[in-house]
Design a protein around this nucleic acid. Structure first.
Lengths: 147, 147
DNA sequence: GATAAATAGGACTAAAATAATCCTATTTAT
DNA sequence: ATAAATAGGATTATTTTAGTCCTATTTATC
């Protein structure tokens, strides 16, 4: 959940435009995130340099950069750490044979592709594509004709 | 862990060749899987038609098909169910906006690519390439010569 | 058929990860 | 000075995962 909450939070901020300060309760209710939990998520996002937190009266959160320069990979990894898929990738020590293990290479490739996919998804595109438009042309949905 | 154990188990069987019956303790020690846990994993693999279980004296496990026809995706999914990466993919209900949510499409694409990668990894190739299963005989119970 | 060697499968426990909450402290606008 | 915000640590609850244990059943062999 936490990573999804983070994506929704950043998406909501991106929709307001960068540098627009939004108070936490508004984000929580609009993006359907438990308010107290959002506190924690925001802290991670701030630590990763994705959002800016302004404390005190009239405080709130804002994107720290233009939405174009924020992607899903960093948002997700700000929350859960580096995506790894499985232990044989993260803790090679757990598997004595892993340096020359073909299965390990498959996991690494799978991981690489997931990260690549999330990296390609920037929040400007996500915010714009509210309407069913996939950022990926090929197998999921046919490319759209431009007006 | 369970999915990794399953991969190691199938890999070990693939290395012995298909149709070769191996007793559970040997697999457990060679593939470094807690013996009692392997019981559970084997049941899932059998249910998925990946291995054959022979009960009774001189019983054990064997691959149910040639290694070429078994891939990492089905082995992993036999254990953990369909790979989903996150809830917004599995339970669209959890997110009222998901049908037209661009982030959701990104998750789906990422998932598609992981599954595609694991699908392409068949156990004949893995076994040939040399993998996860320790090349060293187990100190606990060395494998017996099979007639 | 009796027996010993295997695995099946359900019940159970332990540990870890995740989600979420609460409370006190601190920051800031007015 | 005060009220409106968020920070951040401590804590709890829930769920998932890992692993164990025990009794039942299956099968080869004598």
């Amino acid at each position: 959940m936490a990573a999804e909450y983070a994506v929704r939070c950043v998406l909501y901020l991106a929709q307001q435009g960068s540098d627009v300060l939004v108070n936490r309760q508004e984000i929580a209710s609009q993006a359907r995130i438990p308010d107290s939990f959002l506190t924690k998520i925001a802290q991670d996002l701030a630590r990763a340099g994705i959002i800016t937190i302004k404390q005190g009266a009239k405080g709130g959160y804002a994107l720290h950069r233009p939405p174009r320069q924020v992607n899903m990979l960093e948002v997700v990894e700000a929350i859960i750490g580096e995506i790894s898929l499985n232990e044989c990738v993260t803790k090679p020590a757990a598997c004595p044979a892993s340096p020359n293990c073909a299965a390990n290479l498959v996991w690494q490739e799978a991981r690489r592709r997931v990260r690549e996919t999330l990296l390609a998804a920037d929040f400007e595109a996500l915010a714009k594509a509210g309407a069913c438009v996939s950022p990926f042309p090929s197998p999921l949905s046919p490319p759209e004709a431009r007006p």
